Simulated scan of single mutants.
Amino acid sequence: MDFPKIEQLVDLVARSSIAELDLTQDGTRIRIIKRASAEAPPAPARREGGSDPQTPSANDKDGPASGTPADIVVSAPMHGVFYRSAAPDEPPLVEVGARIEAGQKICIIEAMKTFIDIAAETSGVLLAVLAENGDEIAAGQALFRIGSVGSS
């Protein structure tokens, strides 16, 4: 791995909501951890309706037609290709209706020929998958909707 590519990865992590990137390629392991600065409070979880956590939206492809304010939308931290499984012949990492835990890998995004694991930031029930496997996605695009454990 060359230094320009490492610089690109550091920049990618800095510009995204990814907290950690762990990459092994050709026997070389690189781990980039973004630490919260003392000046900036942690970003709140995005909720249904974009940046305003009080405004629900109903732009779902799967699941119930309307969300509740407690639903959390997991957005793409970067531009790339969205994959629901770890490999083409494997089942999706998460399915609608499944209980997921904070930190659980829920999808993979391929960016710059690098596969980046995306983990859930909160525990709950997966209510909807909002992107199609293999789709090119934009940074900030809604990927999943997670409801509180009592949601269905």
Rank of each mutant, 00 (worst) to 15 (best):
M1I: 09
F3H: 08
F3C: 00
P4M: 01
I6R: 06
E7W: 09
L12I: 09
R15Y: 08
R15G: 08
S16W: 05
S17W: 06
A19D: 14
E20Y: 01
L21Y: 07
L21E: 05
D22A: 12
D22R: 14
D22C: 08
L23P: 01
L23V: 14
L23Y: 12
Q25C: 06
T28N: 10
I30Q: 01
R31E: 09
I32H: 02
I33D: 06
K34W: 02
R35N: 14
A36E: 15
A40C: 08
P44C: 00
R46I: 05
G50F: 03
G50S: 05
D52T: 01
P53A: 00
Q54M: 11
T55I: 14
T55H: 13
P56L: 07
N59A: 14
N59D: 15
D60W: 12
D60E: 09
D62H: 11
S66L: 12
G67I: 02
T68M: 10
P69V: 13
D71G: 01
I72G: 00
I72K: 07
V73A: 10
V73M: 03
V74M: 07
S75T: 15
A76I: 08
M78G: 08
H79T: 14
A86L: 15
D89P: 05
E90G: 03
P91W: 02
P92L: 04
L93P: 10
R99S: 11
R99A: 12
I100N: 04
I100Y: 08
I100E: 05
A102M: 02
A102D: 01
A102V: 03
K105T: 15
I108H: 07
E110P: 09
K113M: 09
F115N: 08
D117G: 06
I118F: 06
A119K: 13
E121Y: 08
T122Y: 04
G124F: 00
G124P: 02
G124C: 02
V125M: 05
V129C: 08
A131V: 13
E132W: 03
N133A: 04
D135K: 11
D135F: 04
E136Y: 09
E136N: 12
I137D: 02
A139S: 15
G140Q: 10
A142Y: 01
G147V: 00
V149I: 11
G150M: 10
S152C: 05
